[in-house]
Design a protein around this nucleic acid. Structure first.
Length: 258
DNA sequence: ATTGAGACCTGTCGGC
DNA sequence: TGCCGACAGGTCTCAA
């Protein structure tokens, strides 16, 4: 989409997670995409008008790109095709989302700066800004569990339920442990914070590599969705437990995560 | 202010 | 085989 112009925009369902802003299609039509980036789990397209197209896939959302469509949607839209972008390059880009947890929004520069979720996001986990120190500082004094803290996008941006479990397992830290315990009272990182920051980066790098390399899919999770299965840590011999934290499933090994 | 729990939505899966 | 309830995920909202 980068460098392409919106030739035609069709909304097929108005009721995604958040309603489309007024005159959505009209404001978009004729605009050129300056750049497409990602922040946390948001896709961000900067437009020539200065407005920002903000997209989120929710749980089940995805984009279908048809480059050979000659700029016109040929096949009739399928089930759950909610938004269709016809681009000047001839590509047709379709947002499909069965569960409608996703959304597409169009923000003015002012709305972008003041966006309640975007403006409070923590650091990108793979950036230099995210390390043991920033993690410890963000967890300092937190009464909540490590699991809940890592799921909080203000602490670190972009971790979801699955990779929080995976990262805590790799760091050998219990999801039940109070978040504050990875930092000293002044916010300095303890050893646990170093292990956790490293584990988060490792688990994400591996996950991205796996997407790129389809030959490498099997056994992709070490704890997630493995309730009652054996822990894969050498010499552990324990079984993976599952419990509910914050109305979400957490998977962990009670014997190697402390 | 911080924290936890429920709501949103629909496809899938296990049990009957 | 078919039906039904439970469950999954990310984020927002509400209440404690």
């Amino acid at each position: 989409m980068t460098g392409a112009r919106f030739k035609r925009v069709r909304l097929r369902r108005p009721d995604l997670r958040i309603p489309f802003p007024r005159r959505f299609a009209a404001r978009l039509t004729g605009e050129t995409v300056v750049s497409v980036t990602r922040r946390a789990k948001y896709l961000v397209a900067e437009l020539s008008s200065g407005e920002t197209l903000l997209m989120h896939l929710g749980m089940s959302g995805w984009f279908r790109v048809d480059r050979s469509a000659g700029g016109r949607a040929t096949a009739p839209p399928g089930l759950h095709d909610h938004v269709v972008f016809e681009m000047s390059t001839g590509a047709v880009v379709t947002f499909n989302d069965p569960r409608r947890f996703g959304f597409i929004d169009l923000l003015t520069p002012r709305q972008l700066t003041a966006h309640p979720a975007l403006s409070t996001l923590g650091p990108e986990p793979l950036s230099k800004e995210f390390d043991a120190s920033s993690l410890a500082m963000a967890c300092r004094g937190k009464k909540t569990s490590l699991k809940a803290a890592l799921l909080d996008q203000r602490v670190v941006a972009g971790l979801g339920n699955i990779y929080v479990s995976e990262a805590l397992y790799r760091a050998g830290l219990s999801p039940l442990r109070p978040a504050s315990t990875i930092a000293t009272s002044s916010g300095k990182p303890r050893q646990a914070a170093h292990r956790l920051a490293t584990a988060i980066k490792d688990v994400l790098i591996e996950a991205i590599e796996r997407e790129r390399n389809p030959s490498y899919r099997a056994g992709r999770f070490r704890v997630y969705d493995r309730e009652n299965e054996p822990c894969r840590t050498r010499g552990c011999g324990g079984r993976i437990r599952r419990r509910t934290q914050g109305a979400r499933s957490t998977f962990y090994c009670p014997s190697c995560q402390r």
